[in-house]
Computed example of a mutant assay.
Amino acid sequence: MEELACLVAAGQLQVPIAASFPIEQIRDAAELQARRHVKGKVVIHL
């Protein structure tokens, strides 16, 4: 895990983000993820 964190910090590993939502829109985020057509991660901002 530490090695992955170092790669991310160095910009050598990137995680694709499909969409980001504020916590107030968590239902919309869950619905998007449930459709399974997402290319990347769905991020919830706390």
Results as ranks from 00 to 15, higher is better:
residue 5 A to N: 06
residue 41 K to P: 00
residue 41 K to G: 05
residue 1 M to R: 00
residue 21 F to Y: 15
residue 8 V to Q: 09
residue 3 E to N: 02
residue 18 A to V: 02
residue 26 I to H: 01
residue 31 E to D: 03
residue 34 A to K: 08
residue 24 E to T: 14
residue 42 V to N: 01
residue 17 I to G: 12
residue 38 V to C: 02
residue 30 A to Y: 09
residue 44 I to K: 00
residue 13 L to S: 09
residue 10 A to P: 02
residue 12 Q to M: 10
residue 6 C to E: 11
residue 17 I to A: 07
residue 43 V to H: 10
residue 31 E to Q: 03
residue 7 L to H: 08
residue 34 A to V: 10
residue 18 A to N: 06
residue 17 I to D: 07
residue 27 R to Q: 14
residue 8 V to C: 06
residue 46 L to K: 02
residue 33 Q to F: 02
residue 46 L to F: 06
residue 43 V to P: 01
residue 5 A to G: 09
residue 5 A to F: 15
residue 37 H to R: 13
residue 36 R to K: 15
residue 43 V to N: 04
residue 45 H to M: 05
residue 34 A to N: 10
residue 38 V to Q: 00
residue 39 K to W: 13
residue 29 A to C: 09
residue 37 H to D: 06
residue 32 L to D: 00
residue 45 H to C: 03
residue 19 A to L: 07
residue 43 V to K: 04
residue 28 D to N: 15
residue 20 S to Q: 15
residue 31 E to K: 02
residue 22 P to G: 14
residue 38 V to N: 01
residue 28 D to A: 08
residue 11 G to T: 10
residue 17 I to M: 13
residue 6 C to G: 06
residue 36 R to D: 05
residue 42 V to K: 01
residue 6 C to Y: 10
residue 38 V to L: 04
residue 8 V to H: 04
residue 10 A to I: 13
residue 31 E to L: 07
residue 17 I to V: 15
